[in-house]
Design a protein around this nucleic acid. Structure first.
Lengths: 188, 188, 188, 188
DNA sequence: TATGAATGAGTATTCATTCAT
DNA sequence: AATGAATGAATACTCATTCAT
């Protein structure tokens, strides 16, 4: 095969898309993304069939990245509270470390480009979180509410926390801990 | 320039915009909105200088509408928990009664059309809520966290609840109550 | 109604399209046509929904124009030969008078933009020709062959004649007459 | 530069181009042709410098193919009418045997890719036909009209006949004979 | 003021052709 | 020579906004 498709270039496009979408939203021109990636207008389309396709794959990559960072080094043997705190802390750390990824993700979430297939893969990436929450929920006051609902409440709290943390970086850690305690009170 | 003649037409445009944005997102053509409002292409721009302006004013109107519905009949003399429950219930009821308003609002939230001026007016509309929460917070475990943060956590929980409630209307009330209890555990 | 759609502008676009297609073929950019019509890029699409639509309508207009010119002043009472000669002569005269229309038509004939509806309208425009040929055919050596076939042979001869006439204008009339005689020998 | 290695590949490309052009017209992407030929995108351009060049050579090949098929086994000693009938019949047979070649040719005819050089070579291929017609013409009613004109009239009739024959294959032979008789009436 | 035609910049995608491997 | 990735000019069509009526 001649010049194989370069994984580097694919990554460059995804990274550029993250930056550009974070800054300009989903309306960002593909040309702007290509330029930011140091790639020609047309090359973008040899790596991604469509703008929608690019968005879908970017969503997948960012979500998986987020999940893997949040779940890394999860102390499986520790008590649930410690595990959730670990998760919570890592999550916030990830978002603070790469705010553009989070911003891009926020835009992509409401895009209609996301494929059911991607959603499934992502759900799988978060299976561990579900397992963890399941044990806690079943033993606490939320034992009557569906697990996905609990997950989405957690998500909502974390997101709101992030918004605050990013605006007020000096107290980010404090806010993070307070929100975690609040969440824990809610859950157990 | 004085206010344009017909207040009806202005309202029609805003209502149409709500519907169209709910359905198509912020990318909806102004022409589509004008058509849905039964108004000509160009007339839209005699009522709103630009698309951004329309979005800004619509955001304002929807938020104010939401606030006024949620705060209506607030039992000022009742204990705080009853008041917050009232608020919570009304809020959910409003969203379930006019899901298009909520959907449109969700889109508008991430728009960059919203003016600081609008944000201020809205903040004022929610002053009562802040007052209410303030008393509760100061007396409970969240006494150390900034009030706006508490508000935004409440907001986040309510939003997540709504997403669930709208997808599963049969258990909407149950979810609503459970989420309220969770919130209350968090707060007090 | 505000500024009504101008019939002049529509005509200008069709005329420009005739010229541009004659020169560049069906691949001609819509922008080139708009420019040639002295109209903005976007205006073309307020008069014709689509490039295909423009082609379809242009085809219709040119064919009808051709038919009406060829059939004008047809001496209905004269003997058939005189009538066919009249037709033949007028046809050639039309094509020589506006060779761009003919060139454009030649391109459009092979386009897949032409609507069945247009083809029907055109067939109707040529009904007189069919009637005329029918009488002649039935009385001559071609009485056994389908009328549409006869028409298309006539068409083919006339077209080939035109190609010659346009390349060699000095003898155009002579060629036209010779071809007519040949056609007549064929038919009667 | 010497001829590129594989004559097979060149042929494959030409054959693929015939099929693809017949189906999609001259707008067909070179990539589609390459794929249909089982050859890479880039290889096409080692065999043909440009798309125009490919078209020119394909035109040449198809025309020569047509001529050679039509002229094969021409009964040189037979009376002119028999020879022309032979030609006529073979021609129609060729087109019916490989309608894609004919369709492609029809598209290529109106392309501006055809080189004067190609036209000359083709003219030479048809020299025999000219000779044959010349004798007949000079002795008949068309003695006054230029030979190339006669040829092109013949061409036009044959083409129109083919269109009919391809649409109505059951009567193709009958139409073919009728058209020949008509042509012969015209010519002699 | 209301209308809707006019405008032209903007956008995703295609494709002939080149070039690194 | 063969491959297919890289390139970037080209193109139909859209849409916010303006303006003639």
């Amino acid at each position: 095969m001649a010049r194989p498709k370069s994984e580097d270039k694919r990554s460059a496009i995804l990274a550029a898309a993250t930056r550009v979408i974070a800054a300009q939203g989903l309306g960002a021109p593909t040309a702007a993304i290509a330029k930011a990636a140091g790639v020609s207008n047309g090359s973008l389309f040899t790596y991604f069939e469509t703008k929608h396709d690019l968005f879908d794959q970017l969503y997948l990559e960012l979500k998986v990245d987020m999940a893997s960072q949040a779940l890394a080094d999860l102390p499986a043997g520790s008590p649930p509270r410690a595990q959730v705190l670990h998760l919570w802390t890592r999550w916030l750390a990830w978002a603070r470390a790469c705010p553009e990824k989070r911003r891009a993700l926020a835009h992509l979430c409401v895009s209609d480009a996301i494929t059911p297939a991607s959603r499934q893969i992502i759900a799988a990436s978060f299976a561990q979180v579900l397992d963890l929450l399941e044990g806690i929920r079943a033993a606490g006051p939320m034992r009557g509410v569906p697990l996905p609902f609990v997950l989405s409440l957690m998500n909502a709290l974390a997101d709101a926390t992030l918004d605050f943390a990013l605006q007020d970086p000096d107290h980010a850690d404090a806010h993070g801990r307070e929100a975690f305690e609040a969440f824990w009170r809610m859950l157990s």
